[in-house]
């Protein structure tokens, strides 16, 4: 069995977000880049599955659609333990471009389980996994919070309103994973970092180089207003403020 983990290169979650070009582009100056947290957990689960004695996973490959500047993030995935990596050499401006380029590669190089994170922590589109499965004409399972392999079938838990759903699927398929898929991401060891030097990182040309989305402008959410303290005795003032200032009652 061969596993592919799609990894997105995203700004560190503590990054202070700024825009340039009249609020039409994200300002990447000084930004630290990381593996999208869900993708990192997906990779962790893939490694756990490979290490388990009762599975027969041959390789774990990571794939990223992005320019050369994403390679440190890909190297980190190799240092964590992926066997090899693919970078589709494209800018990936929207979910369509990412999914279509992933599909272009996977059609030529099939995998049994394709992991995607439920969203990427930068644009929160939640689109790539579903689109990718459609392009590949494969089944997909979303909101996967637990995944085990039993023989040739894969058993999963999906988060649904108020509980979780247990289901199985034959391979190949796309698993769109979220919180719970693995406990904590793995930290690369020094040996892993050294070994990553020798692991293959194949750069392939893009299948498509167009985007279907036009980004018009960005804006930051309004900053939170200061907290107003109301004396516990003064219910009248509280009601008054809720009525006239917050206008919530």
């Amino acid at each position: 069995m061969k596993i592919l983990v799609c990894i997105s290169n995203v700004p560190d979650t503590t990054t202070k977000i700024r825009f340039t070009d009249n609020n039409t582009a994200f300002d990447a100056a000084g930004v630290q880049w990381i593996i999208n947290p869900w993708d990192e957990l997906a990779l962790t689960r893939a490694l756990e599955l490979k290490e388990a004695s009762d599975t027969s996973i041959e390789t774990i490959t990571v794939i990223n659609v992005g320019p050369q500047s994403t390679e440190p993030t890909i190297r980190k995935a190799l240092a964590i333990g992926a066997d090899d990596a693919v970078r589709v050499d494209a800018q990936a401006p929207d979910a369509y471009a990412v999914a279509a380029n992933l599909a272009g590669y996977i059609k030529e190089n099939p995998y049994d389980i394709i992991f995607c994170g439920i969203d990427s922590s930068d644009y929160n589109g939640s689109l790539v996994g579903g689109m990718l499965a459609e392009f590949l004409e494969l089944p997909s399972v979303s909101s996967v919070s637990k995944l085990d392999i039993e023989g040739d079938t894969v058993k999963m838990n999906r988060e649904i309103d108020g509980g979780s759903e247990v289901l199985t699927t034959p391979t190949p398929f796309v698993a769109i994973v979220q919180k719970g898929i693995a406990l904590e991401p793995r930290i690369p060891s020094m040996r892993g970092i050294m070994m990553a030097r020798k692991k293959p990182l194949n750069v392939v040309p893009p299948a498509v180089d167009e985007a279907l989305t036009e980004f018009i402008s960005y804006e930051l959410p309004p900053s939170k207003a200061a907290c107003k303290m109301v004396d516990a005795e003064n219910v009248k003032e509280l009601v008054d403020l809720l009525h006239n200032e917050a206008k919530v009652i």
Partner: peptide, 17 residues
């Protein structure tokens, strides 16, 4: 180098954890 940064950040993460 990118490798030095991965090394540093990995130890940083371990210390935080």
């Amino acid at each position: 180098t990118d490798e030095h940064k991965i090394i540093r950040d990995s130890v940083r993460d371990w210390v935080n954890r």
